[in-house]
Amino acid sequence: MNFKLTKIQFFLMLFFIETGVIYISFQQGVIDYGGRDAWIMFGVASIFMYLLLFFYEKNYKFFRLGKITKWIYILYWLVVIISFLSYMQYTLNVWIIQNMPPFYSLLAIVLVTLYISLSRPSTTVNLGVLIIPLVFIFIVFILLATHELKFSNILPIGTSTVPQWLKGMHYSLTAFIGIESYLMLRKNVLKDEEIKGKPILIFHLIVSIFMGASVIGVEFYFMLKEIRLIPDPILYILKSQKVTFVKRLDIFFIYIWLAWSLLTINLFLFNIRIALSTQEGKNPKPLLFIIHGIIMIAPLFFIGVGQVEFIRKYLIYLFYPFSIILPMIIILFNRRRDSKCDKSQ
């Protein structure tokens, strides 16, 4: 699969991979487990993530997937996609399409993702541009809640315990699921584009501020005890906003979130497409059809409350092996092998 990315396209893709599905809900886990200092924990976690990006940037050339590692990653992304689709389906059923059988709504979503997957790479690469205005509208309407914020909710600072800090930081990483896509996409960035240093810092600051602001905003809006009862705090904030022309503003925002999430799902599928295209001489299309069949059927088994809660609680544990440990192993292995080759030559 041949495609080239500009710096802006590359960062835009990463932005939509990291945001999207989780944006309406990840705050609950961070605040619930982290306590009053959750926003600081998120800040610290994001510093760690910057270091991880720094490591990725330095070593992305050595991140080459072999036959086994490729399938391990495809499986991981499939698990993430299925989890996200289950959560999307659950949210849609709870908020807006109570009467539609999940099979049909999921079928519609998967058919759209299949259409994108069968389109040329530039379609997936550029699709985010169309979502940008919607994200802005989303943010503007969240800002309507500013007058209801209680800034004293985060005080006193420094009350969280060490276990709370560990858990809060652990759940903060939910905001960075998919960060390993950096390694998949980086090789396709135009050679003369500057990524190192300032650009990467600005990108990470944008993501961190965007996600961090939602954490602190939720803390300002809800009392600490309330947050346990509210699984999708951002949607609840939107639901409580009143404007004269529309009664249920939240309905529009769920659809904006749906479009945004569809893009996230497609970017994960794009990672799979890139991985599949490394098989020389093989047409990846049949495999893409199989993969779409899987993501069509599998989420149907995980759309109950219990399963969705399980996903929300445990999906983040996959972050460590697939975003940190495995990339490090692959990079170190390839670095060593390359240096051995150089010496033998």
Partner: peptide, 10 residues
């Protein structure tokens, strides 16, 4: 499918 249909169609 209401708005859902419009979003998918869009």
């Amino acid at each position: 499918a209401g708005f859902f249909g419009i979003v998918i169609g869009g």
